[in-house]
Amino acid sequence: MTDIPAPPWRKARRANAPRTVLSRDLIVATGLRIIDSEGLDALSMRRVAQELGTGPASLYAHVENKEELLDLIYDEVMGEIRVPDPDPERWLEQLRELIMDEFRVFRAHADIAKVGLATVPTGPNALRIGEGQLAIMLAGGVPPKVAGLMVDRLGLYVSSDAYEGSLYITRQRASGKDLESFMGEFFGQVEEFYRGLPTDRFPNLVAQIDNLMNPGGVERFEFGLDLILRGLASCVEEATGPTTKG
């Protein structure tokens, strides 16, 4: 049997869109997607609600406010970081691998570094990372006080480096250009400026411009991290004393 068409003068009834079932996980995932695509400044409870096709008031049954949402998003990102089981024979290598993985994750979610700065870890994933760092260092013989200080310093090093990267991405978004084009143009202008400096006043800056400009972001991060870890290893050597061969 063929359905009878509706008269042309009668408006067709639109089917109601299925209601989104809200949950804390969905709100957090939506918030993270906004931060990754548009930056931290674009995030608001209203914006998340719009993305989910609901009103801001409906979010408050799951998340108290924007501050709590940011804490939850931050901890969600920290959940992507791998933490190895401590191996005393490889502790320094393991710590380096862990920090490099943090660096990778923070670069993938650049604006999240703004949340990590001046934030005391309280979420389960952030606590897992702090616990893992301590376990690795203590297994390697790092003095407890040094290990405690190093957890703070390493977190600051990762967050500050990623934060600098997020500032460039913010400029890139405002320029309307893709990231590669923006960075190439920006640093090309920086290099041109330095090469044009008067050599009688700034001979070293002009002469060393290639060494100042050429290393990429990952290479720069690894350079600083290796210096930090070298200093940490020396603390273990001082604590244990020189090895005497009989």
Score class of each variant (00 low, 15 high):
70 L>A: 11
183 M>V: 10
49 A>I: 04
75 D>Y: 09
62 H>N: 05
46 R>G: 12
167 L>H: 05
53 G>I: 03
89 E>A: 14
37 S>Y: 03
77 V>W: 05
194 Y>H: 07
81 I>E: 06
125 N>G: 00
5 P>I: 08
40 L>S: 15
244 T>A: 15
83 V>R: 07
89 E>L: 10
98 L>H: 13
65 N>Q: 09
97 E>L: 13
105 V>P: 09
170 T>K: 10
37 S>L: 14
233 A>V: 04
129 I>M: 05
198 P>V: 11
45 M>R: 05
211 N>P: 06
178 D>I: 11
186 F>Q: 00
144 P>I: 13
87 D>H: 04
231 G>D: 12
115 V>W: 08
8 P>K: 10
233 A>Y: 02
36 D>P: 09
109 H>V: 10
22 L>G: 01
75 D>G: 07
153 R>E: 09
221 F>K: 01
89 E>W: 05
146 V>C: 07
226 D>T: 03
53 G>Y: 02
53 G>P: 01
116 G>K: 03
214 N>K: 14
184 G>V: 00
105 V>C: 08
129 I>Y: 03
75 D>C: 08
159 S>Y: 02
4 I>G: 01
176 G>I: 05
35 I>W: 14
97 E>N: 12
228 I>D: 03
11 K>C: 00
10 R>K: 01
144 P>H: 14
47 R>H: 15
87 D>I: 04
203 P>G: 07
109 H>L: 10
158 V>P: 01
87 D>N: 14
58 S>N: 07
102 E>H: 09
114 K>L: 15
10 R>H: 01
39 G>C: 11
6 A>R: 14
135 A>L: 02
175 S>A: 02
162 A>E: 04
206 V>S: 03
46 R>C: 00
182 F>G: 01
7 P>I: 01
225 L>S: 02
4 I>A: 09
116 G>D: 11
162 A>G: 08
24 R>T: 15
60 Y>F: 15
84 P>R: 02
175 S>R: 01
60 Y>I: 06
173 R>Q: 05
161 D>T: 10
175 S>P: 00
39 G>A: 12
217 G>L: 02
202 F>K: 02
213 M>R: 08
35 I>F: 13
60 Y>W: 06
188 G>I: 00
126 A>R: 09
93 E>Y: 03
161 D>C: 03
32 L>W: 13
4 I>D: 06
81 I>Y: 04
138 L>H: 04
68 E>T: 06
192 E>I: 01
224 G>C: 00
148 G>P: 04
121 P>C: 06
195 R>H: 00
206 V>C: 06
176 G>H: 01
227 L>Y: 08
219 E>S: 12
213 M>I: 08
56 P>R: 15
77 V>F: 08
31 G>N: 07
8 P>E: 14
234 S>F: 11
141 G>A: 00
164 E>Y: 09
